[in-house]
Design a protein around this nucleic acid. Structure first.
Lengths: 157, 157
DNA sequence: CCTATATCAGATCGACTGACATCT
DNA sequence: CAGATGTCAGTCTATCTGATATAG
């Protein structure tokens, strides 16, 4: 039931632990995201963004980019397909694979979602524009070190 | 199986989305944490930090601070007790509650864990000391806005 | 009586494993 | 044949729900 009665403070010592603070923020985000339909959540946005930016790809390839398991990709793409945001065509050159492609509606929807996230940053609402920019820069730099797959331009300080 | 063969890059558009980048970082942290024994993970450190900083409390109260569900607190404290890090005494003034208290070993262990996290920041290894400090400051400020329970001193910019 | 605490059984979800059919 | 791809069934964990025993 996750008793959120009072507003008992967190210990100072934990506010020195970045993984803890990040986890609390991510969990708060999950609670907020629960109000959205399943097909409109981050995994769907992320998959569509991959297709938009790198063109038609197999489910496997998208999963490698995003670190999503191939078996989980099935369900994620199921929802995108159900909502008419991607087309699951077979790759004619290799009929094991799909050549996943965003539909026109999917492209439009992706643009709307990205705009909404950028213009109404719920999780980072406590920060001003410059602070959000700086935070993002630091997060991306940290991610690039932990997990090599961040493009060069975005690693620059 | 989470195919991490190549090093296919992430789309730029997603690197503009803070919740996505934070989630990737938290997931990377989870993979790293899996190598540690269950009793040595963040929830255990967090509970112990609450007891150290605010004195003996009920499981409920710790859960309210950390946003952990009371039913999950049971298992978290089970491990802490098994490892000899907290004592589950009953509160003599209200025998429904525990007065959870850290043991001497628990205090020592907490100090070691906090030191280790601060001195070897695995997730933020790509950042220098000043960058880590700034990132933490921004994360705490964002959390204070989303979830009011961050103490005053830590909200200051 | 009604409420709070700790606990447990179970639902749900995210992440992963192992197996399998299909195709190269 | 080996190896890749998509899929499914099932495990494991985290998070949350609902119920119960006990104490106030």
């Amino acid at each position: 039931m996750q008793t959120d009665g009072g507003d008992l403070p967190l210990p100072e010592s934990l506010l020195r632990v970045a993984p803890f603070v990040m986890l609390q923020l991510v969990r708060a985000g999950r609670r907020l995201a629960e109000r959205m339909p399943a097909g409109a959540r981050l995994p769907q946005v992320a998959v569509l963004a991959c297709l938009e930016e790198f063109g038609p790809q197999s489910q496997r390839e998208v999963g490698r980019r995003l670190r999503f398991d191939p078996s989980d990709m099935v369900r994620i793409v199921d929802l995108l397909e159900r909502d008419g945001h991607v087309a699951r065509r077979r790759d004619p050159d290799d009929r094991r694979r799909y050549a996943l492609a965003p539909t026109a509606a999917g492209r439009r929807w992706l643009g709307e979602r990205l705009d909404a996230i950028e213009s109404r940053p719920v999780l980072l609402a406590g920060l001003d524009e410059a602070e959000r920019e700086r935070l993002l820069q630091l997060l991306v730099k940290a991610l690039a070190h932990v997990d090599g797959r961040v493009p060069q331009e975005s690693r620059a300080v």
